[in-house]
Design a protein around this nucleic acid. Structure first.
Ligand SMILES: [Mn+2]
Ligand SMILES: [Mn+2]
Ligand SMILES: [Zn+2]
Ligand SMILES: [Zn+2]
Lengths: 136, 136
DNA sequence: CTTAGGGTGCAACTCGATTGCAAAGTTTAC
DNA sequence: GTAAACTTTGCAATCGAGTTGCACCCTAAG
C-alpha cells in the first residue's frame, strides 16, 4: 500500500502540510470530492490553497477531475500506475438522487470508433442514474 | 425532413418566435452550441429568454445538453425519434484545440456494467482530443 | 545568516448560470 | 367581444464556482 508521501514522491510533487492533508482526505473517500466538499472537511484550510493543491495534483496526475454535470467539478485519486492516458480511463457514475459521484475503476472505456483523423487524448465519461443505495 | 414546427408539435412545445428562431439556429449547426454561441448569433434576442428556451427544449427532449468541461454547457438537437433514454444516448467529442463539441450520433453507448443495483438513466459521455481539422 | 523561490492566506474579481419582476402576448371562460 | 387567467419575454440583479493578485511565510541553497 502506498502512503501519501510515496504517492507524492512518485508523482514528483513536493510534500507540504496542505498537500498531505488534502491527499489524505481524498484517499479516505468512497465518492469523488468537490472543492467545497474538501473545504467543508478541512475547515482550517483556505479554499484557494486547496484549489491550487488540486490543480497541482491534477497536473501531476495524482488525481483526476470529473465533470458530472452537478455544477461542481469533482476530484478523485488516480489508481496506482495511472498515467491519465486514454487506456487508463474509466467510467464514472453520478447518482441523481444523493448527488454522489463514483469512479467505476473496474469499468474501462471501450475503444470508441471516432470519425476519420480524430485523435483521442482524454475523456470525461459519466453515467447517471440511481446508485445502489438510492435505487430501492 | 421535419420542420421546426413539426418538431415542436411532436415534442408538445408551444411554438413562439424565439423558440422557432433558436431551434432553427440549432438545426443549422455542425457543432453543439453554448448559450453564448446562440446569444452571439441571435443578437436581438435576450439571453435569459434564450436560456429559458433551452431549458424548455431540454425538458421536452427537443435538445440535449453536453457538459464538455469547457465551462459552458453545450446544446444540440436530438435525433429524430430520440427520447433521451439510455438506449438513445451517444458519445460526444470535444476538440481541445478548436473548442468545438460534436455529437457522435453514430457511436452509441455500449452497455456499461454498473455495480449491483445501480440504475442507468442518463449519461454525459465526452471523449476529448483533436478533431479531424486540428489533428494535422 | 542571507537570499531566492515556491507555497499559503485573504480579499477581490470573473463569468456562466439563474432568478424576480413587470410588461407583453396568448388562451380561456363567459 | 371582453375580461380574467395564464404564459412568455426583456431587463436588471443576483448567485456561486472558479480563479487571480498580492503580501507574507517558509524552506532549501549558498
Ligand atoms: Mn475516476
Ligand atoms: Mn449529442
Ligand atoms: Zn445515490
Ligand atoms: Zn478541432
Amino acid at each position: 500500500m502506498q502512503t501519501v508521501d510515496d504517492i507524492l514522491k512518485i508523482k514528483k510533487v513536493k510534500s507540504t502540510a496542505i498537500r498531505t492533508v488534502v491527499l489524505t482526505h481524498l484517499l479516505k473517500q468512497e465518492k469523488a470530492q468537490s472543492l467545497k466538499d474538501i473545504e467543508n472537511a478541512l475547515i482550517y484550510t483556505d479554499r484557494s490553497s486547496i484549489f491550487r493543491t488540486l490543480k497541482t495534483f491534477e497536473e501531476n496526475k495524482v488525481i483526476h477531475s470529473i465533470e458530472d454535470g452537478s455544477g461542481m467539478t469533482k476530484y478523485a485519486v488516480c489508481a496506482e500506475g495511472c498515467n491519465c492516458a486514454p487506456e487508463d480511463l474509466h467510467y464514472h457514475f453520478y447518482c441523481t438522487s444523493c448527488d454522489k459521484t463514483f469512479c467505476l475503476f473496474d469499468v474501462p472505456i471501450p475503444k470508441i470508433q471516432l470519425p476519420e483523423n480524430f485523435k483521442l487524448q482524454q475523456a470525461n465519461m459519466v453515467a447517471k442514474g440511481l446508485c445502489g443505495h438510492c435505487n430501492k
